[in-house]
Simulated assay, not measured.
Amino acid sequence: MKTIPDASALNGWRKSSYSNGQGAECVEVADGHPGLVPVRDSKRPHGPAVAFPASSWVSFIAAVKNGELER
């Protein structure tokens, strides 16, 4: 994982399909960065982001979809 202090310069941001459009708990990911998946809080576009290795992100998404991270 790598921290990006100001992620506003990155292109390709899109909100999670689970975002409710009311400004709460919105996550954005940036496409088009080979090998990395930058992730940020949509309410802080000039704030920090973290970039995960693409393989780790794929594993995380699979675990979410399979319900492995439910409380």
Rank of each mutant, 00 (worst) to 15 (best):
I61C: 13
P5G: 03
N66F: 07
V39T: 11
D31P: 01
K15D: 07
V39E: 02
S8M: 02
A30W: 05
G23V: 11
G12L: 06
A62C: 03
K43A: 15
R44M: 12
A49G: 10
P34Y: 02
R44E: 11
G21V: 02
A9Y: 02
P53K: 12
P34G: 04
G67R: 08
V27C: 00
A30S: 13
P48M: 08
S59M: 11
K65V: 00
V50F: 14
S42W: 02
F52G: 00
D6Q: 09
A54H: 10
N66R: 15
V29P: 03
P45F: 04
A63C: 09
S8Q: 05
W13C: 07
V37M: 10
S55E: 15
V29E: 02
A51V: 07
Q22L: 13
N11Y: 00
A54M: 06
H33M: 01
V37I: 14
G67S: 07
K43Y: 06
P48W: 04
V50E: 04
A54W: 04
N20C: 00
G35V: 08
G23I: 09
A62R: 15
D41H: 06
V58Q: 15
G21Q: 03
V64K: 03
E68Y: 01
A9G: 09
P34S: 12
Q22T: 08
G67E: 08
S17L: 05
K15E: 07
Q22G: 06
L36F: 10
R14K: 13
C26T: 14
D31A: 15
D6L: 01
A30I: 08
A51C: 11
R14W: 00
K65G: 14
A51N: 06
V39D: 01
W57Y: 15
S19L: 06
V50C: 03
P34L: 08
E25V: 10
S59N: 13
F60N: 05
P53S: 03
A30T: 04
R44I: 02
A62K: 15
R14Q: 13
A9V: 07
F60Q: 09
W57A: 10
S19F: 02
G23D: 05
F60H: 04
A24C: 00
W13I: 01
E28L: 03
P34R: 12
V27Y: 03
A62T: 14
K43C: 08
A62Q: 14
P34D: 14
V58A: 15
S55W: 06
P48E: 12
G12Q: 07
G35L: 11
S59L: 13
Q22E: 11
N20S: 14
D31S: 15
A51Q: 08
R14L: 01
R40W: 08
V39N: 04
A49N: 10
